[in-house]
C-alpha cells in the first residue's frame, strides 16, 4: 500500500520535472526577452527591471505585421482547399469504396513517409516554370499536395467507420452522390474535419524549408517560421529583441493549441496510430 502511494507520489514528481523540461526553452526565451536591450542575458535570470516594451519593439523592428498577414493568407489559401479535397477523397475511399481504392490508398501512404527534402529541389524548378517563385502560391500549392497523404488517410479512417447503411438509405431516398456527401456525410464528419483544420493550420504556420527555398527574396510573403531566419539579421546584435520576436512568432499557434488542445492531441495520437 505504502509502496503504491510512493509510486504515485514519484509519478507526480516526475510529471512536474517533465513539464519543467518541456517549458525550459520557453522560460529561457521569456526571461531573455525581458532583459534590457543591448545586454547579453545568460542562463535563466530574471531581470531587475523587466522590459515589457521589448515585445512592442520586436514587433516594430522586424515589421511583423505584414508577415503575420502573409502567414494568415497562406493558411487561408492552404487549409480550406486541403480539407475539402481530402474530405472528398476520404469519402470516395471510405464510403463509396471506388474501384482501385486500395491501390490509391497505398499510393497516398507512400507520401506519409516521404521527407520533404526528397522533393524540394524539383519543386523549385516546377514552381519556377509556373512563374510562381517568390509568391505565396509557391508555398500554398505544394503544401496542399504535401498534406494529402495524412489528410486523405485521416478522412478515410473516419468514413470507413461510418455505417454504409446511412449512405444506402439516403441513396434509396433518391439522393445524388453529391447530396449524400455534402448534406449527410460532411455534417457527420465535423469532428474529424475540425481536427484536420487545426492540424494543417499549425503545420502550415510552422513550415520552414518550403518558404526558405520557394520564396527566396520576398520575405514578406513567407510564413512566420520561414521569416524567422531573416529576423535574425534584423535584430542582429540584440538578443532580447530576438527572444521577444521568437515568442511573438510562437504565440498565435500556441493560442490556437490551447483553445483546441483536446482535439489536437486526440487527432495527433489517433492520426499517428492509424497512420
Amino acid at each position: 500500500m505504502s509502496s503504491s502511494r510512493a509510486t504515485a507520489y514519484g509519478g507526480r514528481v516526475m510529471l512536474v520535472v517533465l513539464m519543467f523540461w518541456t517549458l525550459l526553452p520557453f522560460i529561457s526565451l521569456f526571461t531573455a526577452a525581458l532583459h534590457p536591450v543591448g545586454t547579453f542575458p545568460t542562463g535563466l535570470s530574471w531581470p531587475a527591471h523587466p522590459q515589457w516594451q521589448n515585445f512592442i519593439n520586436a514587433w516594430n523592428v522586424a515589421n511583423l505585421g505584414p508577415i503575420l498577414k502573409s502567414s494568415a493568407l497562406i493558411v487561408l489559401g492552404t487549409v480550406p482547399i486541403t480539407v475539402v479535397i481530402a474530405t472528398m477523397a476520404g469519402f470516395a475511399l471510405g464510403q463509396l469504396r471506388v474501384f482501385g481504392g486500395r491501390a490509391v490508398m497505398l499510393l497516398f501512404l507512400i507520401g506519409l513517409t516521404l521527407p520533404l527534402e526528397g522533393i524540394i529541389i524539383p519543386l523549385y524548378y516546377e514552381l519556377n516554370s509556373f512563374n510562381l517563385i517568390d509568391t505565396r502560391m509557391a508555398v500554398i500549392l505544394p503544401l496542399i499536395g504535401l498534406f494529402m497523404p495524412f489528410s486523405v488517410y485521416w478522412m478515410r479512417a473516419h468514413f470507413v467507420n461510418v455505417p454504409r447503411s446511412l449512405t444506402e438509405a439516403a441513396r434509396s431516398d433518391g439522393a445524388t452522390t453529391w447530396q449524400i456527401f455534402w448534406g449527410l456525410q460532411v455534417p457527420l464528419a465535423r469532428p474529424a474535419i475540425i481536427s484536420l483544420v487545426i492540424i494543417t493550420t499549425i503545420w502550415t504556420w510552422n513550415q520552414f524549408l518550403l518558404p526558405l527555398v520557394l520564396v527566396p527574396t520576398n520575405v514578406d510573403s513567407r510564413t512566420m517560421a520561414g521569416a524567422l531566419g531573416a529576423f535574425q539579421g534584423q535584430y542582429s546584435d540584440n538578443i532580447p529583441l530576438l527572444a521577444a520576436g521568437s515568442l511573438l512568432i510562437l504565440a498565435p499557434m500556441v493560442l490556437v493549441y490551447i483553445i483546441f488542445q483536446r482535439q489536437f492531441i486526440r487527432a495527433m495520437l489517433q492520426g499517428a496510430v492509424k497512420g
Partner: peptide, 16 residues
C-alpha cells in the same frame, strides 16, 4: 466516386 478522388490525386500527383 473517382470524381471525388481526382482533386486530391491531382494535387498529390503534381506536387509530390
Amino acid at each position: 466516386g473517382w470524381l471525388f478522388l481526382v482533386p486530391a490525386l491531382v494535387a498529390y500527383g503534381m506536387f509530390v
